[in-house]
Amino acid sequence: MIQVSKKSRLAKVALKYCGSCNPRVDLRRIARHLAEVAERRGDFQLVPLSEENIDVVVILCGCPRACGNKEEVKARAKRSLVTAGESINRQPVPESDLPLIVERELDKIVSERP
């Protein structure tokens, strides 16, 4: 279970989809899970990518081509997390585990915040 840490402000997390031309995994399931986690934990909030001072951008790509993984997207936030098909940050992850592993990786980044 993830420990909720008390930080000076809520972490800002933005989601960026690749475009979903022919996704091999259900990206919406990951997004829904993160929205639920954000509400449950209360230490981060989901914000639009257009917002300033974003802490983490989670780039959700439907296949290994990772079309959403672009420098200009990553530059919008201090840290980034890339899912691409059945992988997270290039490490293989079965589709069924994607939401939970994304949550875990996000937690690591959020807890490392000053």
Binding site: K16, Y17, C18, S20, L27, A31
Partner: peptide, 8 residues
């Protein structure tokens, strides 16, 4: 839709 806005 956020999932498709990159393309649309």
């Amino acid at each position: 839709a956020p999932e498709f806005e990159e393309l649309l």
